[in-house]
Design a binder for these strands. Structure first.
Lengths: 211, 211
DNA sequence: GTCTATATACAGATAGAC
DNA sequence: GTCTATCTGTATATAGAC
């Protein structure tokens, strides 16, 4: 990968005002933040670097100082979630631990989840199609339990998806797609929401005998 | 490149006054079919008209004889599913009827579901963001039952999503994302699959008291 | 109904000044 | 670290011949 220079170290050189790692890091993070927002709304392919730059009040060329390409910018946005998820499944946790950790991931990487779940094109551009498929395969396998029958895989997939969707409703990720709540009513959140999501998953994961 | 100027379908040439567009229908449908396949795999924005034309053995310009724009082609592909879905929810069916009809929709419009579920950009380009949000809102409302509390909406969303995901696993819509089955094992299909999906939904939709 | 050729637009990306 | 200016590729869409 090509690097123009190291913005973090250069600012400390002279007698300028303090513009340490702070400034460069701040810009990179603001770029990621704006890019993520636009990717989620318009999709990766439909979002142009011009649009990102305009929103930030800079030019396209300035973007290229921070990221070598549009693809690199996308990867930098999706990487933390994928890496964390892979570490999680690699520990081969039990059902409940896995589900709780998954809900924690949903909470901390909400927007990135929304992006990769709704925009396959961004998965492809980030070269994550295979890795994310493997993640889903592994998660389903762990949820399906030992000696799974076909129906157990179906239930595991359903439970996995139900948790994410229930989270999406409770956190109003797509407000237009959910009925409005009456005055005074509110969705559970925090630890209470985690318990609800866990309970939903366990409902689905009940043994298949009575199907 | 193929230069055949008369594809087929002279069978009804005596009936132009009754079915004037019949000649073009075959070609139009082949275009839709190829377009849908490519949209699903690469996403709407990443699929070029050149790619569609090449796959059909014609040129881009020929495409424009059949569809006024790329957007019109997309709309013609997504319209049948959306229209049918809207008719369905407009009948305000009971839970079980709705779920069975939904599974029927999944079966008959599998690829279109896959497209709009995984590619928000195509929803936007087809100007279906609002309509599909309303469809989901209405479906969730009907699944949540009368006098729903917040938790009932959460359960309804979870159940809705669980059915689609369970269907996707059982029909191996994304084979790489599902663990391989052992020799001789197979997923349920047809009426049996419908019953399984219904049972999963009803598991989730159980009253919320024991959450 | 399909072709060749082209108009037009805008995307991602680079060069070099400041 | 950001700018202006530009290169290059490719996309949608159109014009007009056959």
């Amino acid at each position: 990968m090509r690097r123009n220079s190291h913005p973090e170290s250069e600012a400390v050189s002279g007698n300028e005002h303090l513009r340490p790692a702070h400034d460069a890091m701040g810009t990179k993070e603001r770029i990621q933040q704006v890019a993520l927002e636009l990717f989620v709304v318009h999709g990766y392919e439909k979002t142009s670097l011009r649009e990102i730059a305009d929103r930030l009040g800079i030019t396209k060329a300035a973007l290229y100082y921070h990221y070598a390409s549009k693809q690199e910018l996308l990867k930098s946005v999706t990487q933390p979630l994928i890496d964390e998820f892979e570490v999680l499944v690699a520990t081969d946790p039990d059902r409940e631990t896995l589900l709780r950790a998954y809900v924690d991931l949903l909470n901390r990487h909400q927007a990135v989840f929304q992006l990769v779940a709704n925009d396959h094109a961004s998965l492809a551009a980030a070269e994550l199609v295979e890795r994310s498929a493997k993640l889903r395969r592994e998660t389903v396998r762990q949820l399906a339990g030992p000696d799974p029958r076909p129906i157990d895989y179906i239930l595991a997939g359903a439970a996995f998806s139900a948790v994410a969707q229930a989270f999406s409703v409770a956190r109003s990720v797509e407000p237009d797609a959910t009925p409005a709540l009456p005055e005074g009513a509110a969705y559970p959140d925090g630890q209470e929401l985690t318990e609800v999501l866990l309970a939903i998953a366990l409902r689905v994961l009940n043994p298949a005998e009575n199907l």
